[in-house]
C-alpha cells in the first residue's frame, strides 16, 4: 500500500471503488450540468445492467427532483435492478425520515444517501444509523467553494441539488455527521458537477484529512486521471456519471488506465 499526504496526516491510499452515478428523473436517466439543464438519456436500468456487466463496483441512484417535490420514484427501478444486478446499490433523493430510508432498503437498496433532510434535522442521521446500521447511512454533501479561485477560503454545504445554501462549513458538517452516525460521505463538488473538466481535488484532500469514514469523490470526473487524483487525495471511491453515460469511457477502460497509473482497482 502506498502512502499519500493529505492535510498533514499520513493516509493510506485505498484501492478505489468505481461507482456509476445514475441521476433519475421520473423513469429516465438524466444528466445535468451543475445540476441544471437536465437531459434525458434513457432507461436507468439498461445503463445499470450494462455497467454491471462491464465490471462497475457499485451503483448510485439519485432521484434528482425528489427533494423538490418531497417524494422518491426509485422503488420500481431498484426492484428491477435487484433482480439482475448483484453489486451494492445506494439510493438517495428526498429521504426525509427513517421510514423513507426503509422503503428504499426494502425495494433493494443497500444504502441510502441523505442530504437536505439531514441538514434540516441532523438527528435523522442517528435515527437511520440506529435503525439500519451506520453502513447504510451515506451522508450526501454538496460542496461549493466560497471563493472559486481559492480553496483556502473553504467550502459551504448546499442542499436541494446545489440550489440552496445552508451556511454550514463542509468540514464542520462532515465531522458532526460522522459523530452522529454517518458511515460514508458522498462528497459532490457543485462547482465541478457535470462539467467534466476535472474534480475539486483540494476539496477531497481537506475532507479526507478530517473524515474517519470512507469518502466517495463525486462531481467532474472527466478522465481516469481525475479519478486517480481523487484516490491520491484519500477518497475510497469515485462516482462517475457523464463519462460513462455519454460513452466517453468504458468501465473496463477506466480501470485499465487507473491500474496503469498505479491506482489499485478491482479487476
Amino acid at each position: 500500500m502506498r502512502l499519500g499526504r493529505a492535510g498533514g496526516e499520513v493516509k493510506a491510499v485505498q484501492k478505489i471503488r468505481l461507482i456509476a452515478r445514475l441521476d433519475v428523473k421520473d423513469h429516465n436517466l438524466v444528466k445535468g450540468i451543475q445540476y441544471e439543464g437536465l437531459r434525458k438519456l434513457g432507461d436507468p436500468h439498461d445503463f445499470a445492467l450494462r455497467y454491471y456487466e462491464q465490471g462497475i463496483d457499485e451503483l448510485l441512484y439519485l432521484d434528482t427532483v425528489a427533494s423538490l417535490y418531497g417524494r422518491n420514484n426509485l422503488s420500481d427501478i431498484l426492484a428491477r435492478t435487484s433482480a439482475d444486478v448483484f453489486i451494492p446499490v445506494t439510493a438517495g433523493g428526498g429521504v426525509r425520515s427513517a421510514a423513507d430510508a426503509e422503503a428504499l432498503l426494502r425495494a433493494g437498496a443497500d444504502k441510502v444517501a441523505v442530504n437536505t433532510a439531514a441538514i434540516a434535522r441532523p438527528a435523522l442521521i442517528t435515527e437511520i444509523a440506529r435503525a439500519f446500521g451506520s453502513q447504510c447511512m451515506v451522508l450526501s454533501v454538496q460542496a461549493k467553494r466560497r471563493d472559486a479561485q481559492n480553496p483556502a477560503a473553504g467550502w459551504e454545504a448546499y442542499c436541494d441539488n446545489g440550489r440552496e445554501h445552508t451556511g454550514l462549513d463542509v468540514l464542520d458538517w462532515v465531522c458532526r455527521a460522522q459523530a452522529l452516525g454517518a458511515g460514508e460521505i458522498l462528497l459532490t463538488s457543485v462547482d465541478c458537477e457535470g462539467v467534466g473538466k476535472g474534480m475539486d481535488i483540494p476539496l477531497y484532500e481537506a475532507v479526507c484529512a478530517r473524515a474517519d469514514v470512507p469518502v466517495i469523490a463525486a462531481g467532474g470526473a472527466g478522465c481516469a486521471a481525475d479519478v486517480a487524483g481523487a484516490a491520491r487525495a484519500g477518497a475510497s471511491a469515485a462516482a462517475v456519471g457523464s463519462l460513462l453515460h455519454y460513452g466517453r469511457a468504458t468501465v473496463a477502460g477506466l480501470k485499465e488506465e487507473l491500474a496503469q497509473m498505479g491506482v489499485e482497482v478491482r479487476r
Partner: peptide
C-alpha cells in the same frame, strides 16, 4: 500507523 477509514467498505 496511517489513518484507516472505518467501516471497511469495498472489494
Amino acid at each position: 500507523g496511517a489513518k484507516l477509514p472505518v467501516p471497511n467498505i469495498g472489494w
